[in-house]
Design a protein around this nucleic acid. Structure first.
Lengths: 147, 147
DNA sequence: TCAATTCCGAGTAAGTTCGTAGGAATTGAC
DNA sequence: GTCAATTCCTACGAACTTACTCGGAATTGA
């Protein structure tokens, strides 16, 4: 029931970009130093986020990454889905794979309801929180300038 | 964000035991056949559940496993915790490990709130569903006798 | 021109998952 | 007392995932 470092670091990087949104491209090196993660590893995560259209990049000197949309329009669930895959406790619930909704035996429908409830509650949290929400939290903690 | 087969099969096995609660010990072989999982693999899961006190076992001919408590007193969260470990999206949230609550940098407290909300919502679902709830669902589906 | 930076593909060590294998110990039924 | 059924225990292992590292090509602003 854990998210991996892909999701964790990815959300941290996107949160960092949200805090500095509007200040031009931020380099990987800067993000990696501020969030204390491996630069090369983060590079791979940013590549995924870029291909998914959540960030834009600029190469060369003074290049870096920026959010592709305002922080209020990027949900944490969007980030997690890109980096961790569908938000679901069980593969058979994932409509995108076509393996569900029936897993072969009718009695499993009872358990399916359970797992579906779990999935719904996870998505509810992750899709109702945006980067802007996190930014507001940070401002409220009055530590934004230190980050 | 997935549970592994340990949790999935374990819940299925416990659900099976709940449906047949009060009928004496149920053998691994029977559960494995009904739930279509590997008998040897399930054996390992049942060993964990036994050590955790959720089931009792009886060796020898006509032996098998039984729920240690009535279905209404066993929460799905209890089963998942035994088989998958603490229910938490991030290790640093797990109070039992002592690594939390501070992960070294204050700005992470903002993200901590997010992950904590996620954890709470997952535990809310898993700890508010008991085996009796699932049994009632099954009875309502009128398929209990087929299982 | 050059330093900074993204982009890209490959490799890899350690850990986790999902089992399998084999046999010892226990028990009820006959 | 024997035997079949069953739990109990330890060990092994193959495949997959995770969390990176490495090296270098391409791009860009100063």
């Amino acid at each position: 029931m854990r998210i991996s470092t892909r999701g964790e670091y990815g959300v941290r990087a996107m949160f960092d970009l949200a805090l500095h949104h509007g200040q031009g491209p931020i380099s990987l090196k800067t993000i990696a130093e501020r969030q204390i993660v491996s630069e090369h590893y983060l590079e791979q995560l940013m590549a995924s986020l870029r291909k998914a259209g959540l960030v834009t990049s600029k190469r060369g000197a003074q290049g870096g990454y920026e959010l592709a949309y305002p922080p209020a329009e990027i949900r944490i669930g969007d980030i997690i889905r890109v980096l961790e895959g569908p938000i679901t406790p069980l593969d058979c619930l994932d409509v995108s794979t076509g393996t569900g909704p029936y897993c072969g035996h009718p009695e499993q429908c009872v358990l399916r309801g359970l797992w579906k409830s779990l999935q719904d509650s996870m998505e509810q949290v992750l899709d109702n929180t945006t980067l802007e929400d996190l930014r507001q939290d940070a401002l409220r903690l009055k530590v934004a300038e230190d980050i």
